[in-house]
Design a protein around this nucleic acid. Structure first.
Length: 310
DNA sequence: AACGAACGCAACCGCGTCGCT
DNA sequence: TAGCGACGCGGTTGCGTTCGT
């Protein structure tokens, strides 16, 4: 038995707010302030649910709200910690609401990251994400990491390991991360992974079979490289830091159980994502550089589009 | 010019959390 | 400490607008 409705649906009005309703709500809140929202509709002379009044006020009528387009700086503040609560992000952006941030992410930013070759959910290169899935799909074809790595491959190894460990931590601590959003309900205990097409051209044609597995399998196996890397090996490279430590907002670092990115490192992200301009973005470049390293080191990596993930 | 598709945003819904009694 | 009610959040929906054919 669920909770009874907060108001009588047969009485309350729904749908878009009129200017008259806005004026009533604004007049009431400006003179009485906001207190008990359930009593506001009655006191303000509105036939609305208190919940609806609160939403209208916080998302539209509240003083000092900004209604103009998001700036590049604001986008950066959304991208980096986006896996955290929308309200936390909104709090760091004066004049923006969590609804604004959420809508902006869902309609624009996630698409632009995808167009840049970055998985919008994990912030990892798409091929890197596909590696985890590919290894799950083909457990017999794990390619060992170089035993006597060069300096550059040492970096790659460290990065790859920490990337995957971070993803694993993210999965374990925040189940929503990396999980297709439409499958986040507890009922979605399994999912299907489309077998990715392999390159180079001599690889067999695209396979259409699908592999069914469980999320638990993916979390445990798909992200585990079988290596233990001491925390001291975690390095800062190319403005991308792999660490599992703290989450500090307002001091330039964001973690959220995923990767940490240096604030200010993705200010050109918009141009990169839209294909406008050739200017480089250290944020995007760092990730894509890693992607290229992976591609050169493991040419058999699956190359696919982010749409294959969902 | 007309129509359908895609997009963007405001609003709703259900549920988890918090605080009060 | 348990129960209840209000608040706040994320996901989703509905509808108006814009874009492409």
């Amino acid at each position: 038995m669920g909770r009874p409705p907060c108001c009588d649906k047969a009485i309350v009005k729904k749908g878009p707010w009129t200017a008259e309703e806005d004026a009533k709500l604004l007049a009431y809140t400006s003179t009485h302030g906001i207190g008990n929202w359930t009593s506001v509709p009655q006191k303000a002379g509105l036939k609305r649910c208190g919940k609806s009044c609160r939403l209208r006020y916080t998302n539209y009528l509240r003083p000092n709200l900004k209604h103009e387009n998001f700036t590049a700086e604001e986008e950066e503040h959304i991208i980096l910690p986006h896996s955290c609560r929308w309200s936390i992000i909104a709090n760091s952006l004066p004049g923006r609401t969590d609804n604004d941030v959420k809508n902006y992410w869902n309609t624009k930013l996630s698409k632009k990251l995808s167009q840049s070759g970055i998985d919008p959910v994990t912030h990892r290169p798409i091929s890197d994400v596909m590696l985890s899935i590919h290894r799950l799909s083909h457990p017999q074809s794990h390619h060992p990491l170089p035993s006597s790595p060069s300096s550059s491959s040492t970096i790659t190894t460290t990065k790859t390991t920490t990337f995957n460990r971070e993803l694993k931590n993210a999965f374990l601590t925040k189940p929503n991360i990396g999980v297709p959003l439409h499958n986040t309900s507890s009922a979605a205990s399994s999912f299907t992974i489309p077998t990715p097409q392999l390159l180079p051209p001599q690889a067999p044609p695209a396979q259409t079979s699908q592999l069914e597995t469980t999320w638990t399998d993916f979390l445990v196996d798909g992200c585990d490289l079988g290596e233990n890397v001491a925390s001291s090996e975690v390095k800062k490279e190319n403005s991308v830091v792999a660490t599992s430590e703290s989450w500090t907002i307002g001091q330039g670092w964001y973690d959220c159980g995923m990767l940490m990115y240096e604030e200010g490192s993705c200010s050109n992200f918009l141009a990169a994502g839209s294909g406008e301009g050739e200017g480089s973005s250290s944020f995007v470049d760092a990730i894509l550089d890693h992607d290229k390293e992976m591609a050169s080191e493991f040419p058999q990596l699956p190359i696919c589009d982010s749409s294959d993930l969902y």
